[in-house]
Design a protein around this nucleic acid. Sequence first.
DNA 1: TGCTGATATGCAGGCGGATCGATGCTGCTG
DNA 2: CAGCAGCATCGATCCGCCTGCATATCAGCA
Lengths: 122, 122
Amino acid sequence: MGTALAEMTMPQISPLNGEPIERADAERLAGVLKALADPARLRLLSLIQSAPEGEACVCDLTAPLGLSQPTVSHHLRILTEAGLLQREKRGVWAYYSLVPSAIATIADLLTPPRKRATKKAR
Amino acid sequence: MGTALAEMTMPQISPLNGEPIERADAERLAGVLKALADPARLRLLSLIQSAPEGEACVCDLTAPLGLSQPTVSHHLRILTEAGLLQREKRGVWAYYSLVPSAIATIADLLTPPRKRATKKAR
DNA sequence: TGCTGATATGCAGGCGGATCGATGCTGCTG
DNA sequence: CAGCAGCATCGATCCGCCTGCATATCAGCA
């Protein structure tokens, strides 16, 4: 239940740092990117992020997406398992919200030796 | 022949800025991310980037990947059409190299209202 | 010109995934 | 305690894509 993202933030991998990445690292990173590489899921992230409290339930998302409720639940599940969304059930509703800085983590994984490193800049 | 990436860098879209993104923008961004979301292609980018001159020909890439030559050419084609790689044919060989800051552009697209912007920090 | 080697393209098999309708599950509510 | 509403899961269908084999294309060379 490691939410994909968390499983690979430890060994700071990056496809563009120095050494060629290992096959296993490539597969894990590709897995998370696969979760992002879908129009419906990108729009879901966008909709949830721009929602009132930064959260939204399934019933608020089906209409703007134009997809059926099972399909929306399916996409939310994938995003959650990828570590990009978190789910909180309140009563009958399931509220989804972005995992703080989760996407920024992916952006950092893709960003090469940028000026500022995570530990020391010099 | 706009190399996908270039086609969407103009209207600075971001799934996590403020407004929900449009369907068309989501599809374009998803298209580029799809090119990245594959283990073989991530390793290709990594291998090319870490190669001597930052470039490599197909024959140098088939062995480390463990894939057939047609398959490698296929992946290189996808990465090139996505705007991540550029191809230069010298003699019989086709040398592939990273498009400068192409991946950084994707990372920026994913990165929300970061503190310092690209233009003005204040 | 004919041959050899490096790439690209066509074709086809097989797997994964996006989608929906139907159904099951679970808290409200009357 | 029924009944209902919000979500998740299941089963099935359809489509796209990763991969390899076979073949075409092109550049250098004898």
